[in-house]
Amino acid sequence: MISVEQLCVQVGGFALRDISISVPTGSYAVLMGRTGSGKTTLLEAICGLRRVLSGRVVLNGIDVTTLPPAARDVGFVPQDGALFQHLTVRRHLEFALEVRRWSRDRMARRVEELAGWLGLGPLMDRLPQGLSGGETQRVALGRALSFQPRFLCLDEPLSALDDASRAEICAVLETVCEHSGVTVLHITHNLAEADRLADNLLTLKNGHIESIDSQT
């Protein structure tokens, strides 16, 4: 479960105050809100990329508020994918596994599994420069899921995609969540996307969570 309790985060002149949300284990939560409402800041705080002034981030019952990002078990997909320009698709999928010193065999099996889920087989030796927007997001998703995190934070991963690519990635997300059982918090502006994917729909407005709709 992702649980955020009365979280306060300050970024320059902008502040998130007393934010509390809860995403049940294994569910897919979609967070909506206007541009500049603080959605990305909240996501970054959960990932450990923003210093928290007060409040707590609790993941599966463990208070991770002061833990570094590496210790949180959270996969992160930023808006533009942020692929590493010097690494091939295969090396992206291997990156977190190398950091964790997985064996060659185990790593190869995991990479093949991810490539299958995400349809990355023909792209494995390509560099990011040659990838389309949809392909970039699939690689970013594969990289974030590679180390089998229990939580996945997606920051508008589909916003820059055309309708066909968007539908394709939505299908990929559904498949991946079904296979991995990961708990997802997904930011989007797109209501259709939210309707398709969300178990829980959260809305962030004026620095506060104003409404929470449960669809299931």
Partner: peptide, 15 residues
Amino acid sequence: ISPRHEQVALTLGCT
């Protein structure tokens, strides 16, 4: 170089 790349690396387990 976008700091985002480092941030992603941190979430992937890097110091």
